[in-house]
């Protein structure tokens, strides 16, 4: 019952998930193979959105809860690495695709 109740409570998210799955498929289904790597790298940067969760963990940590403080701090660093590194690497890859004028 717990599971069913949970599903019903979050039914809007479940709709959202299903739509997002199809959107994700649709958005990239016509990508040329040249762009596979940059696209993967770009997607890699986007899932860095997990940083938002890390910020929430960090921001909610009580000042005397050292475990949460330390782990939250680590997770903020990890998430930032994912975001910053991901976007910068993707940009560097795509920089190479610039069309040169002769």
């Amino acid at each position: 019952m717990d599971i069913l109740g949970f599903l019903s409570e979050h039914i809007r998210y479940i709709y959202l998930i299903i739509l997002m799955v199809f959107l994700g498929i649709e958005v990239i289904s016509h990508v040329p193979s040249v762009l596979h790597t940059p696209l993967m790298s770009g997607a890699n940067a986007i899932h860095g959105v997990v940083i938002v969760g890390a910020i929430i963990v960090m921001g909610h940590a009580e000042p005397d809860n050292y475990l949460a403080l330390i782990l939250g701090f680590i997770s903020v660093i990890l998430g930032t690495l994912n975001v910053v590194g991901g976007f910068v690497v993707t940009d560097r890859m795509l920089e190479m695709f610039k069309k040169k004028k002769k």
């Binding site: 799955v21 959107l23 994700g24 498929i25 990239i28 993967m40 986007i46 959105v49 997990v50």
Partner: peptide
Amino acid sequence: GGILVGSAGTIL
């Protein structure tokens, strides 16, 4: 963001 990458990543 997560689901989008999850599904796009799988297709990729």
